[in-house]
Amino acid sequence: MQIPAPFDYARATSVEDALALLDRHGPESRVVAGGHSLLPMMRLRLARPEWLIDINDLYELDFILREGDYLRVGAMTRHTTLLESAEIARLFPIITDAERVIADPIVRNRGTIGGSLCQADPAEDLSTCCVVLRAEAVVRGPGGERTLSMSEFHRGPYETAVAQNEILCEVRFPILPRSGSAYEKVERRVGDWAVVAAGAAVSLAEDGTIDDVSIGLTAAGIDHTIAEAEAVLHGKKPTEGLFIEAGRLAAAASDPIADQRGPVDYKRHLADELTRRVLRQACARALEARHTTTQEG
């Protein structure tokens, strides 16, 4: 079995302690959370940090809290916790959809939202969810705390704005009224990375027209929302015809690469197909939420 190269290990007791350890051990020190991205890379010796700072004891970062118009999710929240959260399922079903297809149940017991976002794999599902939900990342470093939009957070494949001596502490999701969201992924086998996946979130105005919409793709060479597809939906009542047009535009905006999971044209096709599907589902859920809201008065 493959074995990591030697390194030193320290376990942080608090965020402050973790920051101090990162500072002390310098550029070749790295944070490990669930470890399910980093440790396999270390075993294959594609990553060789000199120090690992284990933040698994930072229970202060393991929370799901509603605060005003935001849902705050701690960076150490495990995938399983997200999947099983009733609040997440109600407010952001896109995350529940995604969590069902992220890796496998055992990996989900260890993997964290923070770890997934910081790994920034182009085929990573939660990154797309966060982009679509217009989440914000709260990052703490020696200079204090800063809040980043997802477009600021993502710097490209495997690269984020979190500096070596910083830690992602939480992700904040704005809660919109009469909203719905959905995620769908095509994979070669359960537990595999996405061939392509799509996520969408919509919120409806009182009159049932689309007030806000965002569409994102996973593993399709695009790590921001797709404005041209969103534009056709804005201010209109959701219809199948609009979904088809949005799907077409999403496919046109995508820029996938050919690999073992499929050729470019197939992935473009999936961008189209899945965009339509998630829009359909997100709108259905938003309508349901609208009725619920109405009933609640």
Binding site: R11, G35, H36, L39, D54, T80, P105, I106, N109, R110
Partner: peptide
């Protein structure tokens, strides 16, 4: 797979140090 605090984990992807 072993159980860590009652939950299944893949012990090839957990450091012994992390199980301390």
């Amino acid at each position: 797979v072993v159980l860590m605090d009652g939950l299944p984990v893949k012990s090839c992807t957990v450091l012994a140090a992390m199980a301390d």
